[in-house]
């Protein structure tokens, strides 16, 4: 069994603490993610999945509860240490790509390595390698506004891989793309997962996308209402729980095909 990467116990997040409009977004989340998993976190808008993502990505700290990432208690870290966690342990992929507009593709991929203090030559070599991985090596001098949406997202994925993070955290990575390019991007995630053994956490509201993954965690009103991974470590098809019949069917088909491939 793979090593435990994320251990969340009773994570509670409240906003406006002590004020009349105090708001509890997460109501005691317990979550374990192992190395090499491809997990989808699904939920409707306002369900708390974005807050959970921020928590996993060390962008935010829980009000209560503990979060261990790679044996580090993230809930106890200060701002500077959180920055280091984001830099080295997490690779973010955003819906809106979030590339630095003034920097070309290469510079964008280099940025996390720059913050990690890597030397220029090393940085450039790795950035080129990563761009090759996402098939963007020919356009490394292009600025984001000279790239299509799918190309931008591929650069963003390369950037997320820069410091070889423990987790790739993708927030609606295909949300701004048409279905064809969306599939292309998803293919890259699958490749990273299958070939590089990357742990990928995909946040989405789309059941179709979620169904492509090994494990689906569904969040509603700040609580996990279903988690396919709790019942089975490796997908074999029979224990998949999904929110809709349609998804279930897709997931089953997917699972079957994987079994066949195996």
């Amino acid at each position: 069994m793979a090593r435990k990467l994320i251990t969340m116990r009773n994570i509670i997040k409240r906003y406006y603490i002590g004020q009349p409009n105090e708001l509890q977004i997460l109501n005691g989340i317990d979550l374990d993610i192992h190395e090499g998993e491809f997990v989808a976190i699904v939920g409707a808008s306002g369900s708390g999945k974005s807050t959970l993502m921020n928590m996993i990505g060390a962008l935010d700290k829980p009000t209560e509860g503990s979060y261990f990432l790679n044996d580090t208690d993230v809930s106890r870290l200060n701002d500077k240490q959180l920055s280091e966690i984001r830099n080295k342990e997490i690779g973010f992929v955003f819906q809106t790509f979030n590339l630095i507009p003034r920097a070309n593709a290469l510079k964008n991929v280099e940025l996390p390595m720059l913050y990690a203090g890597m030397k220029k030559r090393e940085r450039q070599e790795r950035a080129l390698e990563l761009l090759k991985l996402v098939d963007m090596q020919d356009r490394y001098t292009h600025k984001p506004n000279e790239l299509s949406g799918g190309q931008k997202q591929r650069v963003a994925i390369a950037r997320a891989m820069a410091n070889d993070p423990s987790i790739i955290l993708a927030d609606e990575p295909t949300g701004a793309l048409d279905s064809k390019t969306g599939h292309m991007v998803m293919d890259i995630f699958h490749r990273l997962h299958d070939e590089e053994g990357k742990t990928i956490v995909l946040i989405t509201h789309s059941p179709e996308l979620a169904a492509e993954t090994e494990r689906i965690i569904t969040i509603s009103d700040g609580s996990i209402i279903s988690d396919t991974g709790k019942k089975k470590e490796k997908v074999s098809g029979e224990f998949i729980v999904s929110t809709s019949e349609h998804d279930l069917k897709d997931a089953l088909i997917k699972a079957e095909s994987e079994v066949k491939e195996d």
Binding site: G57, L59, K80, S83, N87, I100, P101, Y115
Partner: peptide, 16 residues
């Protein structure tokens, strides 16, 4: 602002 957010998400410290 957004650029600053991106930089922070990529690991830029306050001091950076």
């Amino acid at each position: 602002t957004r650029e600053i957010g991106i930089r922070k998400a990529l690991g830029a410290k306050k001091s950076t």
